[in-house]
Design a protein around this nucleic acid. Structure first.
Length: 303
DNA sequence: GCGCCTTTGAAGTGT
DNA sequence: ACACTTCAAAGGCGC
């Protein structure tokens, strides 16, 4: 049953034909779930992708989004039709907020340091994007001929970090106490957003370049690199993240992010507010203004 | 052993 | 509608 579900979702993702709108401006996406955790009215539960790609009513033009979001213009989705097996011509939700990198809390080497500019890789005009293979979407790897041999990485033991896969656990003793089984019930993780996918892919590279190990410092670098990415490069990850969410929704129709609320023990509210309401301390011990707008991206094309 | 740090984005909750 | 909160990943570090 599980494998069948994975198969169908995977096949749908891999083989659904690109929409004719591929390469056009991104369009706002309808919410995948409503407040009750159910797909919006009119969206077939088993085939949200189909609904999205076959909708006879195109979603509104993105102009209103760019106004609402101020500095951030909507990303332009590149023509990925020659790259992805599935393209929609639209992408996931655009960032709500704009933040400008604050001075680093960690001392960074010159090659990785503050205000370092990381230009997007250049490519010949019309050249296809490099093949991007992210493990989260690589359900096909595993036992040869068995695309669904590896469970979706969103499933992890409730105990925490993503180390032991559910199938590994099945090799353990069968006669575990019921309460213990309940405690080890795998947690379905949130699908990764665009930045998280970018981090996963680039982390090793940054570690190699900067000889750093501390994730906090690495994430600072990655955050700056993310801002330095071209819109096309970012669009690649937004598109992947959108597929991740759709696949996740298909695999776990009743799942809600609410399910994982409270599973992590968080720092005290007071301390957390300090770090989330613009009161974050930087390397100079000061509290910078939140979200001072960066210089806006130059428009790539006339909207 | 557990939580913090640090990043952005998605989605949930609260007002 | 908007602001705020939580959690996704990662691994060193401190308690």
């Amino acid at each position: 049953m599980y494998k069948e579900t994975v198969y169908s979702a995977f096949n749908l993702l891999m083989h659904y034909p690109p929409a004719s709108g591929a390469g056009q401006l991104p369009q706002p996406q309808p919410p995948l779930h409503n407040k009750a955790g159910q797909p919006p009215h009119g969206v077939p539960q088993l085939s949200p992708l189909y609904e999205h790609f076959s909708s006879p009513h195109p979603t509104p033009a993105p102009a209103d989004i760019s106004q609402k979001q101020g500095v951030h213009r909507p990303l332009q989705t590149p023509d990925l039709s020659g790259f992805y097996s599935l393209t929609s011509g639209s992408m996931g939700q655009l960032p709500h907020t704009v933040s400008w990198p604050s001075p680093p809390l960690y001392p960074l080497s010159p090659s990785c340091g503050y205000r370092q500019h990381f230009p997007a890789p250049t490519a010949a005009p019309g050249a296809p994007y490099p093949r991007f293979t992210h493990p989260s979407l690589m359900l096909g790897s595993g036992v040869p001929g068995h695309p669904a041999a590896i469970p979706h990485p969103a499933i992890v033991p409730s105990s925490g970090k993503q180390e032991l896969q559910p199938y590994d656990r099945s090799l353990k003793t069968q006669a575990e106490p019921k309460a213990e089984k309940e405690a080890k019930k795998p947690t379905i993780k949130k699908p990764l957003n665009a930045f998280m996918l970018y981090m996963k892919e680039m982390r090793a590279k940054v570690i190699a370049e900067c000889t750093l190990k501390e994730s906090a410092a690495i994430n600072q670098i990655l955050g700056r690199r993310w801002h330095a990415l071209s819109r096309e490069e970012q669009a690649k990850y937004y598109e992947l993240a959108r597929k991740e969410r759709q696949l996740h929704m298909q695999l776990y129709p009743g799942w809600s992010a609410r399910d994982n609320y409270g599973k992590k023990k968080r720092r005290s509210r007071e301390k957390h507010q300090e770090s989330t309401t613009g009161g974050k301390r930087n390397a100079f011990g000061t509290y910078p203004e939140k979200a001072a707008a960066p210089a806006p991206f130059l428009p790539m094309t006339v909207l």
